[in-house]
Simulated scan of single mutants.
Amino acid sequence: MDADFRLKVFYAAACKLNFTKAANDLFITQPAVTKNIKELEQQTGVTLFERNGGRLMLTEAGEILKEHAKKILDQYNQADYALSLLNGKESGMLKLGASTTVSQYVIPTILALFHAKHPGIQLQLVNGNTEQIERGLLDKEIDLAITEGSASKNSIKYIPFLKDEIVLVTATANNRIQQIEDYNELKKLPLVMRENGSGTLAIIEQSLKEKAIHLPELDIRLQLGSSESIKEFLLHSNYYAFLSVHAITRYLQDGSLTIIEIADMDIHRKFYFAHMYGTLSALPNLFMKFAFQQQSHT
């Protein structure tokens, strides 16, 4: 059972506002996207897209169809899953979102185990910082997400999933500090931080505020968009960074990175499942329950 392909093409283009990106997501050519959009416009008798200064935008009719297309495609997906259970063969599409740390260090194992148990279910994972993932939920591009922050959007429900700790680290070869006793010492360290909008940066900022230290007081030399890039930077510099323990396990084991203890400062947080308020449909609920089961076994 499959939804009308032209509706799928339209929805992908409406979300991306870029025919080339929509084509890449659907594994078709850009001319094929244009062809399907034109056919849909002929069928409906309305113009769905317009260009304003070279920028692709939805018309009023396009905005209306986008809202309904999401509901229609979701219903197709739910019906596909329900009918597949009657045949003893699961099928369906689950669109997941994960903030950067989660997508790199937490969810891959869960995805592999879930896919092994439910091979008929197609999985799509979108990753980005917490702000971007929450936007994907609000725009209904994602069915279920795991984020590094909680309760930042009133229309999103956050469910605690996994504990995490953020620690100060640096390259072992360049380190001359064993422990920080005075918080003011932090202000003297050359730091590399995550980018604005990152859940990691938000929790660091909040924890430092509790010790009367504000980000502008720190010597932040640059900001990078992922824990991976920060780790590689640390290995080739004398800088310091706050990173999730999930991100540095292997580096601690091989001795390339070292944790610097900060007296009376522990930065703890939780990763959260996040979805729009309301009843969670079958596939996202199935995945969330599976993830909790896996976590209880570790």
Score class of each variant (00 low, 15 high):
18 N>E: 02
18 N>T: 02
19 F>Q: 01
19 F>I: 07
19 F>Y: 08
20 T>L: 14
20 T>I: 10
20 T>S: 13
20 T>Q: 09
21 K>D: 08
22 A>P: 00
22 A>I: 00
22 A>H: 03
22 A>T: 02
22 A>V: 04
23 A>H: 06
23 A>K: 00
23 A>M: 06
23 A>Q: 04
24 N>S: 10
26 L>Y: 05
26 L>M: 05
27 F>H: 12
27 F>T: 09
28 I>C: 03
28 I>S: 04
28 I>H: 03
28 I>Y: 03
29 T>C: 02
29 T>G: 08
29 T>W: 06
30 Q>H: 03
31 P>G: 07
31 P>N: 04
32 A>Y: 03
32 A>V: 08
33 V>I: 06
33 V>C: 01
33 V>R: 01
34 T>R: 13
34 T>Q: 12
35 K>D: 06
35 K>I: 09
35 K>P: 04
35 K>F: 11
37 I>N: 00
37 I>Y: 04
37 I>P: 01
37 I>Q: 01
38 K>A: 08
38 K>C: 06
38 K>W: 09
39 E>C: 06
39 E>W: 04
40 L>M: 02
40 L>C: 04
41 E>N: 05
41 E>G: 01
42 Q>H: 13
42 Q>A: 12
43 Q>R: 13
43 Q>A: 13
43 Q>T: 12
43 Q>V: 10
44 T>M: 12
44 T>S: 10
44 T>R: 13
44 T>L: 15
44 T>D: 07
45 G>R: 08
46 V>S: 11
46 V>Q: 15
46 V>Y: 14
46 V>P: 05
47 T>I: 14
47 T>Y: 11
47 T>P: 03
47 T>F: 09
48 L>V: 02
49 F>S: 00
49 F>T: 00
49 F>L: 03
49 F>D: 02
49 F>H: 00
49 F>G: 05
50 E>K: 01
50 E>D: 10
51 R>C: 03
52 N>R: 14
52 N>D: 11
53 G>M: 02
53 G>H: 05
53 G>C: 07
55 R>N: 10
55 R>V: 15
55 R>L: 12
55 R>P: 04
56 L>S: 01
56 L>M: 07
56 L>Q: 03
57 M>W: 00
58 L>F: 02
58 L>Q: 00
58 L>A: 06
59 T>C: 04
59 T>A: 01
60 E>Y: 07
60 E>A: 14
60 E>H: 09
60 E>S: 14
61 A>Y: 09
61 A>F: 07
61 A>I: 04
61 A>S: 15
62 G>Y: 04
62 G>D: 05
64 I>C: 09
64 I>P: 08
65 L>H: 06
65 L>T: 05
66 K>M: 07
67 E>P: 00
67 E>K: 00
67 E>N: 04
68 H>P: 05
69 A>H: 05
69 A>Y: 04
70 K>S: 13
70 K>L: 11
70 K>I: 11
71 K>N: 12
72 I>Y: 12
72 I>C: 06
73 L>K: 06
73 L>P: 06
73 L>Q: 02
74 D>E: 14
74 D>S: 13
75 Q>G: 14
76 Y>Q: 09
76 Y>S: 10
77 N>W: 06
78 Q>F: 08
78 Q>P: 14
78 Q>W: 05
79 A>N: 15
79 A>Q: 15
80 D>T: 13
81 Y>S: 14
81 Y>L: 11
82 A>M: 14
84 S>Q: 03
84 S>R: 04
85 L>G: 07
85 L>S: 11
86 L>F: 07
86 L>C: 11
88 G>F: 13
88 G>Q: 09
